[in-house]
C-alpha cells in the first residue's frame, strides 16, 4: 500500500486502499508514526477504498488510537466497507473507536473539536 496522506484544515487524512493485512500493515504503521512524529495530532482514517482488513491491519489502527489517546490527539474512522466494518465489530472496535459513515462527517467532527 502506498499511503499518500493529505492535509485539510489542520486535519491529516490517511487514505487506506485495497488490503490492510499481514503483508503491508507495517508500511501503514510506519507512515502513521512518521506523521505523528511530525507533530500531527488530528487524523482522519479514510476506509472508503479499503476492501479487506485482518488482525495485522487492526493492530495498526489500535496502535494509532492508543498513541493519540496518550498524546491527547484525536482520530476518526470514516467510510468503512462491509468486510472492514464486520471485522471491527467482531473485535469490539466499534465501541472503542470513533466511527462515522462519511468523510465529510469525520471532517466536521474533527473540526468541531479544534
Amino acid at each position: 500500500m502506498n499511503i499518500q496522506a493529505t492535509e485539510q484544515d489542520g486535519i491529516t487524512i490517511i487514505p487506506l486502499e485495497g488490503r490492510l493485512d499481514g503483508g503491508n500493515a507495517t508500511v501503514a504503521e510506519t507512515a502513521f508514526l512518521q506523521l505523528l512524529s511530525e507533530g500531527k495530532q488530528r487524523f482522519l482514517f479514510d476506509f472508503g477504498n479499503l476492501q479487506y482488513i485482518s488482525s495485522a491491519g487492526l493492530r495498526v489502527i489500535l496502535v494509532a488510537a492508543k498513541k493519540l489517546r496518550a498524546s491527547k490527539g484525536r482520530m476518526v474512522c470514516a467510510s468503512l466497507t462491509e468486510q472492514v466494518y464486520d471485522v471491527f465489530e467482531m473485535s469490539g472496535f466499534t465501541t472503542i473507536l470513533d466511527i462515522v459513515s462519511t468523510k465529510e462527517e469525520a471532517l466536521e467532527k474533527l473540526q468541531a473539536e479544534a
Partner: peptide, 11 residues
C-alpha cells in the same frame, strides 16, 4: 478483550 477500554486493551 471485546469489552476492554482502549487504554487497557492489549495489542
Amino acid at each position: 478483550l471485546l469489552d476492554m477500554d482502549l487504554e487497557e486493551r492489549p495489542i
